[in-house]
Structure formats: structure tokens, C-alpha cells
């Protein structure tokens, strides 16, 4: 990701802010500029829930460039408590222990690092809920 694009998206990636359609009320993440339910472009920012549960998940063993050092890593489809679904890495758990429906929460992590001198991209990942 380029530095300008990372900068444009920090607020949304750091704080899990999505979009809410002012016409039909459909919420989504990440922001796309168009409502996925009705096609409206009349959208507002909405702070999404930071807790949810795992809908499904997989293990990535052959990651794209820039993610090699994290492999193997988990990617999960998380349904937040407000109903919005988010695709995210799942951390602090071994693949054998992941279960559909398990409670998770947003964590703040490094997502990608541009070598030894470039930008460090931070953002959300999910982890088992710490209560």
C-alpha cells in the first residue's frame, strides 16, 4: 500500500469506522462509496462494534508479498455485534483452537511493514475476547 493510501485510511482502519446508508440503513465495511444493498451514494460514517463472532475461517500458508513473515496466519470472516461482517486476520490463537461462533474482539496490530526504512502500517485484526 502506498503511504498516501495508508494515510487516507488510517482513521477507518485504526478505529473500525464503516459506512451507513442514509437511504436504507445498511452498514458495511470497508467503505466503498456505494451502498451494497440499494446502490445509494448517500452514505455516513459509522463506528462499528469492536466485538463479534467467527463465521468462518481459513489458514493462509502461501501469503502475498509483504506478509511472508507472518505465515502461516489465520484469516476469519467476523460478524460484529452490530451485524456488519469484516474480513480480518485472527491473532493470538492456534488454528486448531479456532471454532465457528467463538467470541472475538478488535486488536490493534502491525498489518504490513515496508522494509527497514519504510512506513509501518497499523490496523485492526481480531483476537479471542479478553474478558
Amino acid at each position: 500500500m502506498s503511504v498516501p493510501r495508508y494515510w487516507r485510511e488510517t482513521k477507518y482502519r485504526y478505529r473500525l469506522i464503516g459506512q451507513m446508508c442514509a437511504q436504507c440503513g445498511n452498514a458495511g465495511f470497508p467503505r466503498s462509496g456505494v451502498c451494497s444493498a440499494c446502490g445509494s451514494v448517500d452514505l455516513e460514517e459509522v463506528k462499528l462494534a469492536e466485538t463479534g463472532h467467527v463465521v468462518t475461517w481459513t489458514v493462509v500458508r502461501n501469503p502475498p508479498a509483504g506478509y511472508m513473515e507472518y505465515a502461516p496466519y489465520l484469516v476469519a470472516l467476523v460478524e460484529l455485534d452490530d451485524g456488519v461482517r469484516v474480513l480480518s486476520q485472527l491473532v493470538d490463537i492456534e488454528p486448531i483452537k479456532v471454532k465457528t461462533g467463538m467470541r472475538v474482539e478488535a486488536a490493534f496490530r502491525r498489518v504490513k511493514v515496508d522494509g527497514g526504512s519504510g512506513i509501518i502500517e497499523y490496523g485492526y485484526k481480531f483476537r479471542p475476547l479478553i474478558e
Binding site: Y14, R110, Y122
Partner: peptide, 16 residues
């Protein structure tokens, strides 16, 4: 730390 943690991620977690 895990591979994707550093002082900033720790600081954000406890700040939240």
C-alpha cells in the same frame, strides 16, 4: 511480542 506487535500496538491496547 508477537510478530505484528510493537511498542505502539501495546500503547494503543492499554490506551483503549
Amino acid at each position: 511480542i508477537a510478530m505484528d506487535e510493537d511498542t505502539i500496538t501495546i500503547a494503543v491496547e492499554c490506551a483503549r
